[in-house]
Design a protein around this nucleic acid. Structure first.
Lengths: 213, 213
DNA sequence: TAGATTGTTAATCGATTAACAATC
DNA sequence: TAGATTGTTAATCGATTAACAATC
């Protein structure tokens, strides 16, 4: 009820905590202090404690944090304790690459179908996931409980398909199209703008070159 | 010389300005005020003016900004006015997807070669880009002026290959491997952690579900 | 108990927004 | 010139870091 409104900065850091804790578990580490973890992750111990305390007290004074327990709690916070069914829109190189990525499935992100406009691709399977014709998307969404739609299609198509998705109750979109989608406030969009990421890298190269002079 | 140290928040927004200005150009818009642009981009006009003034005064009082000019200036700031040659390490689904992405080339990011451990893949071509054996990487870097190395390989391999890259003078890494690379301070790394992006989306889904109750 | 380390409050730092004088 | 809008300074807001009392 009383929602403290977690800041975006914190949310972005959660998956990284999850990863480091998973690595620690794999290394057989049982407990860790915010201090030790801060050194490994190259952040401040204060930040770690502040971040975690947004969600509750997971540690114990004088002891630190139990790695396995904290790992599990963060997984819960991130919603990794349930299945997130997905559809991928666009069976191009990217769509197929994502469909083939076993790792997502391990974390509960299961792709149920891939959709494409190209009739030649329809009927194929990618790692046992059926490729369906894009016109069947609306019906598919009505008949299946899909949590996430992944958009790996060009911008114009992405804008059009988003309407179909929203009209058919999709509440989460993972958007690889290079466009800002306009959706109702109860639909969450996570953008992956690869060309923007590449441009940031390019900026830093240019900056480094300038500083050398 | 006097480097004002541009904040990360600003750098992240630059590509988005670039995109919106490109769209405006395509729409035939010649001039735009920070106010108009702020409405389209859903940010404050103040932020736009502050951001741009980190790099110089590109506007004119009483007029606003010339779209084509500002577009070009931001492109320069982002280093898009020169060629950024790349190599892609890993000819899996992702490596091939990136190699096939024509859009990068249009912005000056040209892939010169793809490297892989699998001898079966070596000798093939992806859109005319040769696939070479990973053992030839060091020699290739010595004989070619490569700006960016793109890592689309598993984490353990990524860590190993990074050593080869750094030893052979690579100063920029676009890292798709789910690991934090340890590099000297003059090497810039831009991470694309897809599973972290997906987890953030998952968090927001979980959060929305909680708030509904 | 003494030592360690959390949870949390207070202080600092940085980024965003507001305001307005400068100027086209 | 009058109106519009920038460039920039000042005010506010939020996030990070420091400090320390609580407590295991």
């Amino acid at each position: 009820m009383e929602n403290k409104e977690i800041s975006n900065a914190v949310i972005k850091r959660l998956p990284r905590y999850h990863r480091y804790l998973g690595d620690l578990m794999a290394q057989g580490v049982e407990r860790i202090s915010s201090q030790e973890l801060s050194i490994r992750m190259n952040v401040t111990a204060s930040q770690i404690r502040q971040d975690l305390n947004n969600f509750g007290g997971f540690g114990q004074q004088g002891y630190g944090y139990n790695v396995a327990y904290l790992y599990q709690e963060i997984a819960k916070i991130l919603g990794l304790d349930r299945e997130n069914s997905m559809v991928i829109i666009g069976c191009g190189n990217f769509g197929r690459a994502l469909a083939n990525y076993q790792n997502f499935e391990n974390r509960g992100f299961v792709t149920k179908a891939i959709f494409d406009v190209n009739p030649d691709k329809v009927g194929n399977r990618v790692r046992n996931i059926p490729v369906l014709y894009i016109d069947e998307l609306a019906k598919f969404l009505q008949n299946n409980d899909i949590k996430i739609a992944v958009l790996t299609i060009p911008r114009e198509e992405a804008v059009k398909v988003t309407e179909v998705l929203v009209d058919n109750g999709i509440k989460a979109i993972w958007n690889f199209a290079h466009v800002d989608l306009d959706v109702p406030s109860d639909v969450v969009v996570e953008n992956v703008h690869l060309s923007e990421s590449l441009m940031q890298l390019s900026y830093r190269i240019a900056e480094a070159a300038k500083n050398k002079k």
